[in-house]
Structure formats: C-alpha cells, structure tokens
Computed example of a mutant assay.
Amino acid sequence: MESIVTSVSKATVPSLMLCVFGITTGEFVIAGILPDVARDLAVSIPAAGLLVTAYAIGMIVGGPVLTALTARYPRKPLIMTLLAITIAGNLASALAPAYPVLFAARVVTALVTSTFFANAIVIAVSTAAPGRQASTVSKLVFGMNLAMILGAPIGTFLGSGYGWRAPFLAIAACCAVGLLLVTRLVPDVRDATPATSAVAELRVFRRGDVLLAIAVTAVANAGLLMVFTFFASLVTEISGFAAGAVAVLLLVYGVGAAAGNVAGGRLSDRAPMAAQLGLLAALAAALVAMWALSGNMAATAVMVFVVGALGFSVIPGMQARVLATAAGAPTLAMAVNASAYQLAAAFAAWLGGRVIDGGLGLRALYLVGAVVTVAGIGVSAYAWLRDRSRTPEPATQP
C-alpha cells in the first residue's frame, strides 16, 4: 500500500507543480512586458500598472470567498474547473482588443488563483508518504519560485521577440498541459478532509490575530511590490539598460528570491519575529541604496539580486504566522495569505502610479518603497509586542 501511495504522490506533485508554475508565471510576467502593453494599447505606464491591481483585486476577492464557498466540493473536479478558467482567462488576455478587456480578463483569471493553490496543497499533502508532508508542500512552493526564476524571464523574452500577447498564449498552453496531467495522474481525494461550510470557514476572519497577520503581510510587502510592478521601466529609463536586458535582470531577481526564500525560512525557524524585523530593515536600506545607485548599471544589477533576496526572505515567516493564527481553517489560510500579498500588490501599483503622475518621477519609487517598508516594520513590531504581552493559556495536557 505504501508503494502505491508513493507512486501516486510522485505523479501528483509534478503535475501540480507544472500548474502552479504556469499560473504563477501569469501573475509575474506583467512586470517584464508592462511598457509594451502600455504602448500597444495606447495607455500610460501608471494605467498599465493598474493591470497588477486588477489581478490583485481578483485574488483578494476570489481567494477567501471562493475557497470558502467551494469547501464542500470534491477537490479534483474543482481544480480541473479552476484550471479551465485560468486557460480561458489567459487566452482572453492574449486576444484582448482593448485595455478594458485585458483588465477584465486579468480579474477573472485571478479570481480562481488562490483557491487553486489552496486545494493543490491539500491534494499534494494527502497523497504524500507519512512524514513527508512538509517537503511535499515545499515542492509546490518551488513551482512558484520557478515561475519567478524562469517563467517571468522567459515570458519577457517572448514578449520582446513576438509581442506582449505571446506570453499569455504560452501560459495558456502550459496550463492546458497541466490540465491533461491532472485529469490522468492526480487522484480524487474528496474524502481526505472533512467537509465544512462557508460560514464555518469564514469565521476565521473574526479573530484579531488573523487580521493582524494579514496586515503584516500586506504592509510589509507593499514597498518591494511597488518597485517590482514598474521594474521594466525603472531599469530601462533610469538605469539605462536595453529592453532586451529586462529578462536577464528578472532572472537575477528570481535567483536572489529563491536564495532569500531558503535563507529566510531558516532564520525564521530560529527567531521568527527578530528575523522578520531585521530582514525588513535590511530591505528598506537596500531600496534606498538602489535609489542612490540607480544611475550605475553594474551596481543596479547587483542590487537587483540583493533586493530580490531580501524581499523574499521575509515571506516564509509571514506564511508561518498566517498558518498558525488560522489553524482552524487550513485551506482558507493558504488563500488568506495569498490575498494579503495581493492586497499589497494592488496598493503598490496604485501608489506607484500616483507617485509617477504626481511629478516625483520613476526614481522616487525606490524611496517611497523604502518608507512603506518601514511602515511594515512598525506593524510587525506591534504584532510582536502584542504576542509577548498576551498571557499564555494553561496547558490542557501534560
């Protein structure tokens, strides 16, 4: 029986990883093709940046609500339906004749993203061999990292050579292959977890510690996401890189993000809040350094790696905090964490547009991002002090 479970898990996880890779690439790729989209659809860079807000809004709304409403549905048919919607959304993005259509397509695609991730994690864990649940989840998370390291640069390369619509077609094709693999190789685990109602799942939002965890994730990530949203414009217009170098710089950023994710996870295991405060402080300083060095191409390339590493080093600790505070609804906790991150993305894209339109210019995004990150330090410190001031509940078992 164990060998059967193991073989199922070996087929399930790669299939879901491919889906995660395709879906997450659809989220990140806009950063590398933003100027091309703006130019082709005859809108400003700040208006094109709102496409990031559109995707974020979809995830913010769709994550908690759709995950709760579908809590009683069998998981395999559910993720197959969600994948089909993702394919349709990316095809609509590729064929969009005008900006409003592209905006709507991004929202629809994003609505299902968090719910897919949440259910994919539950399916993968349910098919894992005993004692390997955590490593199984890490493999799915690695699919997200690959989207940053490979997906976004490849999408940017396709956009530069074949137009900004090509990446969305490639993402749709990737998700279509993933759907075929899920249909054939992923088991139906409808009985793996007890069914719960939407009301029971959504009750998790009544807890103050959950809301504070969401606030930490949202505020602390907004500064970096502001810079990432306008990444292509910053490195070409401010630092002087050619448009073809954007894909390479995104690769550098992604490698830094992967390294930071691993290092940040280890640091957070040892001292969760101290690590988070220290890493956020280092990130704020790095953003100021990028502002100071943005006219130097070599220094900018180095700082792209450093900022990617620091930005993603804080994420493992934030994920752990959200999961711990929302332990009563584990599937919803995944969606809540994604929604908090997207709340930061929506705010970052909006604020970045206001900074540019307000006359401060693109370069000021680095300094404003640093200020927002400092605000994240403040929220994190408040959460830390609040936790330390609470009286531990007495143990119920020896």
Rank of each mutant, 00 (worst) to 15 (best):
G244I: 07
A245S: 15
A245D: 14
A245R: 12
A245V: 04
V246M: 09
A247V: 09
V248N: 11
V248H: 08
L249W: 10
L249T: 06
L250E: 09
L250N: 05
L251W: 11
L251K: 00
V252N: 11
V252Y: 11
Y253S: 00
G254F: 11
G254T: 08
V255N: 05
G256I: 04
A257P: 01
A257S: 15
A257G: 12
A258V: 14
A258G: 07
A259N: 02
A259M: 13
G260R: 02
N261M: 08
N261E: 06
V262H: 12
V262Q: 11
A263P: 00
G264A: 10
G265M: 10
G265L: 10
R266S: 05
R266G: 10
R266F: 14
L267C: 10
L267W: 06
L267K: 05
L267R: 09
L267S: 08
S268G: 13
S268R: 02
D269N: 12
D269A: 12
R270I: 15
R270H: 14
A271T: 09
A271K: 13
A271W: 10
P272G: 04
P272A: 11
P272T: 04
P272C: 04
P272D: 02
P272E: 03
M273I: 01
M273G: 07
M273S: 02
A274Q: 14
A274P: 03
A274W: 03
A274K: 13
A275Y: 06
A275T: 15
A275V: 07
A275M: 11
A275R: 05
Q276T: 14
Q276C: 04
Q276E: 08
Q276D: 03
L277V: 05
L277I: 06
L277T: 00
L277C: 02
L277A: 02
G278F: 02
G278I: 02
G278L: 03
L279H: 01
L279S: 01
L279I: 11
L280M: 11
L280V: 06
L280R: 01
L280N: 01
